[in-house]
């Protein structure tokens, strides 16, 4: 009876959710069942993938053992975590500074003009960005090698093989691309601050610097926490576009550009090793999952309202 009344009352709700539910089921939940591939050594004697799956040998943790035996596991974990941590810090500091500075500009027109330009890279795809980087760094024709370095009397550099340079290039590219997005968010938050605070501060004789440090920044902190938390939740997931497109798949750069996402992609697509690739994927999902919980727990202890869940 209860089923019926529930259905009568909320039947329409189920119908409304059906398309979204199906998509989630197929796009997200069915693949979760597929993670068992990570514990198999896939061979392909049948034409049906399910039969192959059933017939493939269980190898237990073999794929994981193998993953951690090579230095790859360490390198991709290190790269993913270090780059993402750096990105989080840069995406916090620079946009906040930019937002405050832009807000202080006297000319409204100039403020709008700069905001437009700074925001522009955010809407460009990684393909376009990789073109732009290529135009600058191409070793024979790139602008840096043909114009900038000669001006300083420096020999051209083969950027796409220069391992030492990429730990700087990646954060630079990432920051230029994303700074506009965060800046706009922080500007919106600054606009939301009541002018009375500043008026009172001016009357008390506070200078600009004091106003920024004592009013603007403290009031921005909740937004900063939310934006940072959202990124920490994804700290084990790298931006595939950045790491795949911008270094142009250059082999010698792998030690500083290979991240978990590119590794998963390459082991599957290039080596066709579904077991190893799944193992790396499952490693990413699991550790990512734990990190989200840890960071959320941590935030919850400090400030309950800022927690994600």
């Amino acid at each position: 009876m209860a089923i019926r009344s529930n259905l009568r009352k909320y039947g329409m709700f189920y119908l409304m959710m059906l398309p979204g539910f199906l998509i989630l089921l197929v796009n997200n939940y069915l693949p979760m069942a597929g993670i068992v591939i990570a514990f198999k050594s896939m061979t392909y004697q049948h034409s049906n993938i399910l039969l192959n799956f059933v017939d493939s040998e269980w190898v237990g943790l073999e794929n994981f053992k193998y993953l951690f035996k090579t230095s790859d596991a360490w390198i991709i974990t290190r790269n993913t975590l270090l780059y993402n941590s750096l990105f989080i810090v840069l995406n916090l500091i620079i946009p906040v500074i930019f937002a405050i500075m832009l807000n202080e500009l006297r000319s409204k027109f100039l403020a709008r003009f700069h905001q437009s330009i700074i925001f522009l890279p955010y809407i460009l795809s990684w393909i376009v960005v990789s073109y732009l980087v290529y135009g600058l760094l191409h070793d024979k024709n790139g602008f840096v090698n043909t114009t900038i370095l000669p001006a300083f009397g420096v020999d051209p550099v083969q950027w796409y093989f220069k391992v030492e340079a990429w730990p700087y290039i990646m954060p630079l590219v990432n920051t230029v691309k994303n700074v506009g997005y965060y800046m706009v968010i922080y500007m919106a938050a600054i606009i939301g601050i009541d002018d009375e605070y500043y008026e009172a501060a001016t009357i008390d004789g506070a200078n600009k610097w004091q106003q920024i440090m004592k009013i603007t920044i403290p009031l921005l902190i909740p937004v900063m926490i939310i934006m940072t938390l959202l990124q920490i939740g994804r700290i084990f997931y790298a931006d595939f576009g950045l790491f795949y497109q911008v270094p142009k798949e250059s082999g010698p750069l792998f030690p500083v550009t290979n991240v978990i996402d590119t590794y998963v992609y390459r082991t599957f697509i290039a080596m066709g090793d579904s077991g190893l690739s799944s193992a790396a994927g499952l490693y990413q999902s699991t550790v990512g999952f734990i990190l989200v919980f840890l960071s959320n727990w941590f935030v919850r202890r400090i400030d309950k309202d800022s927690a994600l869940f």
């Binding site: 193998y66 090579t70 790859d72 093989f161 250059s250 082999g251 010698p252 792998f254 030690p255 390459r266 082991t267 290039a270 080596m271």
Partner: peptide, 12 residues
């Protein structure tokens, strides 16, 4: 394993 290493070094 070696296929992956080759990808990094061999062509370069």
């Amino acid at each position: 394993a070696i296929v992956n290493i080759d990808r990094q070094y061999q062509t370069a």
